[in-house]
């Protein structure tokens, strides 16, 4: 029995079992986006932490970091990260709801998937207006 643990276990056939191009399902799409957004967010954290560290160190360091953080590239990174964090926020709440045993019938699950997409776009727009 001890030998069984040394076998190279197969990976589960995750992404390949879903339709991605032709009529994608909102439920699997929502799940993939949750993973992508979550794992992309450190990019914004790296930029943000560099900017904060530069502010702490001195005027010259801040001038460089602030120039990058507020350049078109910085704006692009933070704007997409804002969308990503709001999406991850809603999709995370959706997972907590699912894990509590609710909303697992097809209609509700699909509705919640759309809710994450629409909610994140609306709140990103709202945040950009307020800030």
């Amino acid at each position: 029995m001890a030998d069984a643990n040394r076998v190279d276990r197969p990976l589960s056939p995750h992404l390949t079992i879903y339709r991605i191009v032709w009529r994608p399902q909102i439920t699997s799409f929502a799940s993939m986006m949750h993973r992508i957004t979550g794992n992309a967010l450190p990019v914004a954290f790296i930029l943000g932490v560099w900017w904060l560290l530069a502010a702490a160190i001195g005027p010259e360091a801040f001038a460089t970091a602030n120039w990058v953080a507020t350049s078109w590239l910085g704006d692009l990174v933070f704007a997409f990260s804002l969308l990503a964090i709001w999406y991850h926020f809603f999709a995370g709440l959706r997972h907590l709801y699912f894990d509590a045993g609710h909303g697992l019938d097809l209609r509700t699950a699909e509705l919640l998937g759309w809710g994450c997409v629409v909610g994140s776009v609306v709140l990103t727009a709202l945040t950009l207006i307020i800030i």
């Binding site: 900017w51 502010a55 702490a56 602030n66 507020t70 933070f78 964090i85 926020f89 997972h95 800030i131």
Partner: peptide, 27 residues
């Protein structure tokens, strides 16, 4: 996840407001 759900909206506001300010404002 639950902790972040409570903190992140306010954090976005705080960080977003600070971004774009002068060094003195950020400090």
């Amino acid at each position: 996840a639950v902790a972040l759900a409570f903190m992140v909206p306010t954090f976005i506001y705080v960080f977003g407001s600070a971004l774009g300010g002068t060094r003195d404002e950020v400090l």
